[in-house]
Amino acid sequence: MKRVLPEKYMFSYQGDGDLAAIGTGETIHTCNRGENIAIFFINNGIYGMTGGQMAPTTLPGMKSSTSPYGRNLDTMGHPLSLTEMIAQLHGTYYVTRQSVHTPANIRKCKQAIKKAFENQKLQKGLSFVEIVSNCNSGWKMPPVEANKWMEEHMFAAYPLGDIKLPKE
């Protein structure tokens, strides 16, 4: 879309099941080509839409409908952090990991999203914003508890902050 409508802002909004599983190849190559777009990656550690199956980002021991006894690293692999992987590619310009569970984090995340679009306006290349999120229905937790669980467990595996900043 960006190649055929270069004057328009383009962004994708993707889950971990999409970006880190079935779409891994496309994600890596889009980043590697340095497409002048913004990718917003919502990481809730699970396939939400389809009813809570294990995602590549599911944490060790975490229960899901396809890992009902907890993710077993020997048979189901390790959590995959595509964000750190694509940060190593020459094609990515700005890579950051944010969250939206407190007003302060929402403000920070807003800044990151704004920066991603500014980069695009300046034709700087690909900006990648991961947003670590919860999925209370998929995690089978009340919202407040899900946020707490996210802070305690998800942030340990997926630490918040900038991962790749433009060299000015």
Binding site: G17, A21, I22, T50, G51, Q53, T66, P68, Y69
Partner: peptide
């Protein structure tokens, strides 16, 4: 790979866990 309306197949197999609990059948997502 999960997709509605058939995800119960892999979910049932994950729950039964035949690899460790029944006859050694491999189940992989």
């Amino acid at each position: 790979y999960p997709i509605t309306p058939q995800s119960e197949i892999i979910e049932y197999l994950a729950k039964e866990d035949p690899f460790t609990k029944r006859n050694g059948m491999v189940v992989l997502q």
